[in-house]
Each structure stands twice: as structure tokens, then as C-alpha cells.
Nucleic acid binder design. Structure first.
Lengths: 200, 200
DNA sequence: AAGGAGAAAGTAAGTCCTCACATACTTAAC
DNA sequence: GTTAAGTATGTGAGGACTTACTTTCTCCTT
């Protein structure tokens, strides 16, 4: 036996372990036995904390839906002076966060593809809000005459798409990153293309 | 009993049925029993044609890796006069194909996430070749002075990313398409942003 | 301060069901 | 009548979840 944890601590540890496994192998691809083993406990312990495997998965989605870091730092940057700064902040944060820990992105994709019931909530909290933030930022720019008239939501998703696709290629499809391209340079490139592209 | 098919026909029919199921529910999420039912045959029939479920999945990937439509039409457009035409052709083809039948995109994502052994081959044949085509087109444009000096591969993936992300949002995450945006307009918007963005 | 009752954390060893796959057989085609 | 297409019915492994039990902590009583 390893160590005895309090109910709450053990619960958190199970969730953490499960995040890792579910994000790498999906809901169906992960067995409760695996989770128990990776957490160093017996399977029964998992079912003391979560009635079903599905409930554990839902708990994960709920936990992962909470954090607000990205949006917060984007909003902060939005008070900055230049458009480039805002986009750079959003893009860099997405890159850095996902490269440090790709589990969120993989969970989002898995839960949508596998059709999990909470997938929508997950999407709303982690994705849509970012889209709407950027979209309204761009709409303002259009109104103020800095950008040409464009559909702000589609265009916002276009920018985010460049970054997400870059991450998809490297984190999901496993393409090796060329050493010449640092995150900063990549984001800078996307930002410059995008801004030139929507300016009057 | 429905109808008796020749070996070859039955095999094709099984593959078709399985494409539909695997693309909607993934490899692990689909049972051989389901496939048999959907195809209107007994499970044993599947195993007459494919030794294992995995072998059936691999057969699907191989079949789906073959078609060349997108690249062909892109290459044709590349002989055209304007850069916008080339990008428009690529973007529109991607949109139209995926909207008509999202199974390819979903299979690509599923196989990469689930870590299927043939996922790489799949990616090479369907994705990488398109990236390389566009990348070399852009590199030429840079050399001829039409575009400013940029990393052509990263930039090509940026453009494709706008389109792929748009599809991801609507086909995988199930966001409803706003009726105001026709495929043509969306692609046109992405093309114009991108071209203005990389022009000198 | 000791000690013991009760609660909370933990486990071993099932149960039952579903799944991939196998075997032995039947029906239809040329 | 042989061969190819097809089925009904296993089977064994593995998966989610249970049950009955043990160990360890906590804290109240004397």
C-alpha cells in the first residue's frame, strides 16, 4: 500500500490521472482498470468516488471547463494599444498552453467526436467564449474604421484556425516541428498576415 | 435473407458500411455486430472478408488514402492566371467535399487521436501532399516577388487552417452554420485576407 | 493518557455482460 | 456437385461495476 489520502485528495488525484489517460486514448479506449493502476489504487476506489466511468468523465469535463486563464489574459491585452498585441497575446497563449499540456485540446476533440453529452458545455466554455471575445474585438475595429467590413465571427475563427490548425498538425498528427520556427515567430507570422489581410 | 452478392461486391459494401460507422463513432466505439447489422449480414460474413476488425479498419484507410480529386483540381487551377483562383479552388473543394461527406475528416481525426498504426500513411496521402503542393506554389510566388518572404509551409498551413478550422467547428463540434455565409463567400473571405496578408 | 467505537479509506475477488472472433453447418449458383 | 455465399451458435477474454471484507484514522469517554 502506498499512502492513504483524504477523500477529496484522492478524488482529485483520480481526476488528474484520468485526464491524462482519457486525453491520450479517449473514453472508450481507456479502461477503469488502467486508471486505477496508474493512480496506484484498486478499481473499487474509483467507484467509491464516481458511480460510473461516464460520471468520472463528466467530472473531468466540468473541471476542465472552469479555468479562465486564456480569456483573462486576452482581455488584459485588449486594453493595450495595438491590434497586433491583442492577437499576439491570444495566439501565443494558445500555443504555449497547448504545447505545455495538449490534454485540453485532445479532450475537446475526443469528446466532440465520441459524442459525449457534455461536449457542448465543454465547447461553450472553452472555445465559443474565445471566439466571441475576438469577434467583438474585431467588430469594434471595423466600426472604428481600422478594419475593412468583414464578418467578424468568421474572420475571428479564421485567425484562431491558423493557430489551432498549427497545433493540430503538431500535437495530434504528430508532425515534427521544424526547429527554425519558434512559437513567437509562428504567431507573429499569422498575426501579420491576418492584420494586413483585414486592414483597409 | 436479403440478396446474395459476389465476394467483391459484399466486400465493398462492408467497407462502405464500416466507413460510415467508424467515422461517426470511432474504431473502439464501433462493434463488429453493429457493422454486420447495418450491412444486413451476419458477423461471420465480416470475418470471411477481413481476418480482424483492425484489418477492416486498415482496408478503409487504404481505400480512403487513394483518391486524388482534391490535389488534381488544385493542380489544374494552379495553371490558371491568378493566385486567388488557386486558393479559391483549394478552399472550395475542401469545403464542398467535406460538407457533402464529413467521413474523411472524421476518420482522419479519429485515427490520429486513437493512434492507429496506419494513421500516418493516411495523413501523408491526404494531408501532407496538399500542404506541400500549396507550399511550393507559395514559395514560387515568393521567388517571383509577388509575395513577401515568408516560410511557405507554415503559411500554407495557415491558409488551410482557416478552412479546416471552419469545417471542424461546423462538422465536428456541430455549431450551426449561419445562413448568411455561403461556402463561396467564406472561402472568398479567407482568400482575400490571406492574399492581402502575404502580398508585398 | 489509554483505549476503543465508529467512520472513512482501502482491497480482493467476484458477477455478469459484451465483444471479437471461431466452428460447424446450410443454402444457392453455375 | 462442387464451390462460394451465407448463417446459427458457440467461446474465451476483458470490461464495468459489486460485495464483503480489512486496515487505518479520529475523537470521545473514562
Amino acid at each position: 500500500m502506498r499512502e492513504r489520502l483524504s477523500g477529496e485528495e484522492r478524488r482529485r488525484q483520480i481526476v488528474e490521472t484520468a485526464v491524462d489517460l482519457f486525453s491520450r486514448k479517449g473514453f472508450r479506449g481507456t479502461t477503469t482498470r488502467e486508471i486505477a493502476e496508474a493512480a496506484g489504487i484498486s478499481e473499487a476506489m474509483i467507484f467509491k468516488h464516481f458511480a460510473t466511468k461516464r460520471e468520472l468523465y463528466s467530472a473531468i469535463i466540468e473541471v476542465k471547463s472552469e479555468t479562465e486563464q486564456l480569456l483573462a489574459s486576452a482581455a488584459k491585452a485588449a486594453r493595450g494599444t495595438h491590434d497586433a498585441e491583442v492577437l499576439r497575446a491570444v495566439g501565443l497563449k494558445m500555443l504555449e498552453q497547448t504545447e505545455r499540456d495538449p490534454s485540453l485540446m485532445r479532450l475537446l476533440l475526443f469528446s466532440a467526436l465520441e459524442g459525449h453529452e457534455l461536449s457542448e458545455i465543454f465547447f461553450e466554455s472553452r472555445v465559443r467564449r474565445l471566439h466571441e471575445f475576438l469577434s467583438s474585438y474585431i467588430r469594434k475595429g471595423v466600426e472604428e474604421g481600422r478594419f475593412r467590413p468583414v464578418d467578424s465571427l468568421i474572420v475571428a475563427r479564421g485567425f484562431i484556425g491558423m493557430v489551432v490548425h498549427y497545433l493540430l498538425i503538431h500535437e495530434v498528427f504528430g508532425v515534427k516541428r521544424p526547429p527554425r520556427a519558434s512559437p513567437e515567430e509562428v504567431v507573429e507570422l499569422f498575426v501579420s498576415i491576418f492584420l494586413k489581410g483585414i486592414q483597409r
